[in-house]
Simulated scan of single mutants.
Amino acid sequence: MSSAQALSGAFAPVITPFHADGSIDVPRFLAHCQWLIQQGAGLAPFGTNSEANSLSFAERSALLGQMVEAGLPPSRMLPGTGACSAPEAAALSRQAIELGCAGVLMLPPFFYKGISDEGLYAFYADVIARIGDARLRLYLYHIPALSGVPITHAVIERLLRDFPGIVVGIKDSSGDWNNIETMLQRFPTLAVFPASESFLSRSRPLGGRGCISATVNINPGPISRLVESWHTDEGQVLQAQVDAVRKIAQAYPMIAALKEVMAQGLQDPDWRRLRAPLDLLPADKAASLLKDLQAAGFQLR
């Protein structure tokens, strides 16, 4: 795997298109990945906005292999390998290592709630031991609103101490700037990726590596440029532009909103499909979303 020091940029938790029978639409998925790469973004498949927890282990494993076979660069891939069971998380992570992915993004075990710091540490330590490969680059995934399992600073500190060069980063989806800022200051070796591009102009000066954001799926070029030019006059303009798009999109159920934008922008209604239990945007909400984006000057491509 590539070094943690080299991993930066805007990464998309790649949305997953489906056929009418509910199976993954691999050609559409790969075409979307190719476009994201061409726009300067990285790929974080099997994230929250990928509907990852509605995909089976076999589906994730097969699709990861197909991404590499299609010529997508593993050095720009950060697949989600989290699972409630340590054996499953370890197995998908081992595959990512063998394929040369830049790292893996790993949720905490999210079924049991109220688990202790000791229990959470033991889970990650167990997964690392099962993988048993020094090439592992593990990025923690802090999303307490959905997982119900916060990754505390005490757990981060212990993992960094006990697994140097293995535990190397974190995606923070808390939306809490104070937490992001504290991690950047307290853990200077940790690659911190906020889950929103709206934090870029604040996080980058403190050493933030970029973002892993849902809206990179639809706005990859401007967000990728902002990661690099945050400190310039262009960066100020870009920050305002991407903030406007983000504010509109996050006012709706995010996955359905992203797929609606894809369907409309590509004139491809098949992009609207979601797996249960998620629902399509109602027609009035879809129209409002698209109207607001148009008013903000947004174009998909």
Rank of each mutant, 00 (worst) to 15 (best):
Q250Y: 15
L138F: 08
G165S: 09
Q264H: 15
F18A: 06
P222L: 06
P194I: 01
M254Q: 10
H32V: 02
K171A: 03
G208K: 08
Y139L: 15
L238A: 15
V237H: 11
I131L: 05
S147I: 01
A4D: 14
V155L: 10
A70T: 00
L36I: 12
A12N: 02
V14H: 07
Q39W: 04
P17C: 11
V26K: 07
P150A: 11
D243F: 08
G47Y: 04
R202G: 04
A191Y: 02
P277R: 14
Q66V: 06
Q264T: 11
R204Y: 02
S174R: 03
T215H: 11
S224T: 12
V127M: 09
A154S: 13
F163D: 09
L280T: 11
V14E: 05
G119D: 08
W177T: 13
I248N: 08
A295L: 14
N179Y: 07
G42P: 06
D243P: 00
S61A: 13
D172R: 14
S203Y: 04
D292M: 04
P188N: 09
Q5F: 01
I223D: 12
Q239L: 03
L146D: 13
A295C: 07
S116E: 01
A129R: 15
L200F: 07
M183V: 03
E234G: 06
G80N: 10
L200R: 13
R301V: 00
D279R: 15
Y124T: 04
T152I: 11
Q294A: 15
S147M: 05
I143G: 05
I156N: 01
P144M: 08
V227T: 04
C33I: 09
A195C: 12
A44G: 09
T182Q: 13
W177E: 05
I115C: 13
V14C: 10
L92Y: 13
T182P: 00
F46G: 07
R60G: 07
S61W: 12
V168D: 12
V127Y: 02
S93T: 15
I180V: 14
R130M: 11
Y121M: 14
P79N: 14
M1C: 06
L43M: 12
Q34F: 03
I248L: 03
L99M: 13
P188W: 01
P87C: 05
S116R: 12
K247H: 11
Q236I: 07
L190Q: 10
D284E: 15
Q250D: 07
M262H: 08
F46I: 10
R76F: 02
A122M: 04
F11D: 03
I37P: 00
Q250P: 00
L190W: 11
G210Q: 03
P45N: 04
Q185S: 05
R158S: 00
G40S: 07
I131Y: 12
L63F: 08
Q38M: 04
A249W: 00
D162T: 06
F298S: 09
R246A: 11
Q241K: 15
N217W: 05
H231P: 09
D284G: 00
Q267I: 08
P222C: 07
A191S: 14
N179Q: 15
P277N: 11
P222T: 03
Q239R: 12
R202F: 06
D292G: 00
A102S: 10
P45A: 05
F18Q: 14
E260D: 11
S50Q: 06
Q250N: 08
S198L: 06
R158K: 14
G71P: 01
